[in-house]
Computed example of a mutant assay.
Amino acid sequence: MTTQPPEAERLQHLLDRLLRGVLLPAEREQLAVLVRELEARAHTEAAVARGNLGVAKDFMAATNAAEARIRDLKAEVARLTAGQCTHALAMCEQHHAKPVAGCPYPRCRAATATGRAPTA
């Protein structure tokens, strides 16, 4: 058996008396106070929920921006790695065991075309 908070029990009691048509004037005022408190609580909770939704949207936007930045940085690393290969064949051989798109040396170009690992 679950126990209700005293205010919930009091609200149930007052509503029952209202429905039976035996609510006293003092009880009407008590009922009105309880209803106003519930309304204020509902407005507060709604405001908190809206605030939480705003925070969640901001977090998602920041996450999306961070993921886009990561993609951009990975593309830049790949571009710079390929650019190093144009500087010296030794750099090509030193820096990537897997073929790199854009590397101009035959070793990477052939491996990229065949999908196999480059050979020295």
Rank of each mutant, 00 (worst) to 15 (best):
L23N: 13
A26M: 11
E27M: 14
A32K: 10
V33D: 07
L34S: 10
R36C: 02
E37T: 05
L38K: 08
R41C: 03
A42Y: 06
E45T: 04
A46P: 02
A46K: 01
V48C: 06
V48G: 00
A49S: 13
R50C: 13
R50E: 15
R50I: 12
R50K: 15
L53K: 08
G54Q: 15
A56N: 03
M60K: 08
A61E: 06
A62S: 01
A62Q: 06
A62K: 02
T63G: 04
A65R: 02
A66K: 05
A68C: 10
R69S: 13
I70F: 14
I70C: 00
R71H: 14
R71K: 09
L73N: 04
L73H: 09
E76N: 00
E76P: 01
V77M: 09
V77W: 09
A78L: 05
R79N: 08
T81W: 03
Q84Y: 10
C85D: 10
T86M: 11
H87M: 13
H87R: 09
M91N: 13
M91K: 07
Q94I: 11
Q94C: 12
A97V: 12
K98F: 10
P99R: 03
V100M: 04
G102D: 02
G102R: 03
C103T: 01
P104F: 06
Y105C: 10
R107T: 03
C108E: 04
C108Q: 04
R109L: 11
R109W: 10
A110M: 09
T112P: 01
A113T: 09
A113Y: 04
A113H: 08
G115C: 04
R116W: 04
P118F: 15
A120E: 09
